[in-house]
Computed example of a mutant assay.
Amino acid sequence: MTNGPTAEPGREILPDAARLRRHVEFLAREPRGRLRAPAAMERAEAYVRDELTAAGWLVRRQPFDARWQIGSTDRHGHRALALKPRLHRRLRGANLIASLPGAPTGPVVVVGAHLDSVSGSPGADDNASGVAVVLETARLLAGAPTPPGVVLAVFDMEELGLIGARQAAGELSRNPGVRGMICLESVGYFSDLPGTQRLPAGFEKLFPEASAAVRADGGRGDFTLVVHRRSSADAAEAWRRAAAAATMTGLLLRDPRPDGPLGLLIGLAVPPAGHLGRSDHAPYWNRGIPALMLTDTANFRNPHYHRSTDLPDTLDYQRLASVTAATAVTAVTWPDTGATP
């Protein structure tokens, strides 16, 4: 497994698959969401806050009150966010933002994942897996000899249309500023069986190289997809190299759209490209901030997506540990190329 941050010379701190499983099992006991399952959401939020604090991070709860937001519904169902549009009159939620004492001032790298699930689904993969990686990354980075310029973010209301991430992107881009962002979106489901990896309609024409790589592997769902843009290409390659050292395959997929509002508009017009902005990295792209999305491709691989069967036993925790190792390394070595102007 790849070398990770070290607490002292000669002593590595490595991801713990058992600890990752413990996080997922707690978070995925039940569906959680601010609107339909508020008590469960509060329990999940308290768990995350306590785990981050125990790892030595300073945690800020940042409430928000968002009005007239275009988003989606969080009702369960095996459909993508973009196919469930809704206008929200008012949404009140909260993000958790954590930093290490003594970390350098200035622009940071954000590592984030959303905490909520859709109604009716315990959301082990979507997205307790991503939150578990954030929590284990917290433990790894807290052991570094020098606190890195990394902020950990756990977002609210992703299933309602990236609401929490939009709020956090605005706040963090103002203070302290953001160099880059790594989004963990459904990162724990893998399959070595041929034909388990599907592609969205129109994907092969728009992304022939990535599609050919999936076909050459027999359509196995044994990789992590690393979605990036030109601004984050170097970071994507850094993640791929770190993952390879941790015996994990990273398949790079470049979104051809530019960062900023134009990229958002193109995604609305070209649905296959729109799939690449279906999580909490998109608000950072829309602000011109380099970002990665790490994903097992959700409903294009996992048959339990947004269903009651999205349970902890369906995940691969050894591979999830590899995802964590590569994420921690990339966060602390984020390349300067493509940094926010």
Rank of each mutant, 00 (worst) to 15 (best):
D126W: 05
D192F: 02
A128C: 12
R22N: 07
G161R: 11
A233T: 02
F223Q: 11
D74R: 06
A103K: 00
A153I: 01
F190R: 10
E209C: 00
I182H: 01
L262M: 13
E8G: 01
A328N: 02
E204Q: 10
F155I: 09
F203G: 02
A244K: 01
D234Y: 01
L152F: 02
L311P: 04
A46P: 04
L91R: 15
T333F: 01
P38R: 00
L81H: 10
E158H: 11
M1V: 10
L172F: 09
T53N: 04
P312A: 10
L193N: 04
F26G: 01
A269F: 10
Y317K: 05
S322C: 00
A37Y: 14
P101A: 10
V24I: 01
L135Y: 01
V118Q: 05
A124S: 06
T337L: 09
A7E: 13
A80N: 10
P341H: 07
W334C: 07
R229S: 11
W68K: 03
L253T: 12
T53M: 04
P5I: 06
L315F: 04
L311A: 14
L162P: 09
A66L: 04
A153M: 05
S173P: 02
S279I: 14
N3W: 02
L83W: 11
L141S: 06
N302S: 09
V270S: 05
D125S: 05
R21L: 04
A124D: 08
R43H: 12
R43D: 15
K205E: 06
G77R: 11
R278A: 15
V329D: 09
G250S: 05
L35T: 11
E45D: 06
H114Q: 14
Y317V: 06
R19I: 04
G260C: 11
A55R: 00
A331N: 03
R36D: 13
L87G: 02
Q69M: 04
R60A: 14
P303E: 13
V150N: 09
V118I: 13
P290K: 01
G112D: 12
T224P: 00
S129V: 07
A273T: 12
G161F: 12
E136P: 06
V134M: 07
E42S: 12
S117R: 08
V59P: 03
A37P: 02
E185W: 00
Y317A: 07
A325L: 07
H76V: 10
R19G: 14
P148G: 09
L294M: 06
D222S: 15
V48F: 02
V226G: 05
S186R: 08
T146C: 00
T73W: 05
A103D: 03
L91E: 12
H306L: 09
L87S: 06
S99H: 12
A326R: 03
G250E: 05
T333G: 08
A201G: 09
N175R: 13
D65T: 09
T6F: 03
G93V: 11
L264A: 15
T314K: 14
A80G: 15
D192N: 13
A269S: 09
D313M: 01
A321K: 03
G123Q: 03
H114L: 14
R49E: 13
R220H: 10
G260S: 12
R230V: 13
A54T: 11
A233N: 01
R86F: 07
Y189V: 06
L96F: 07
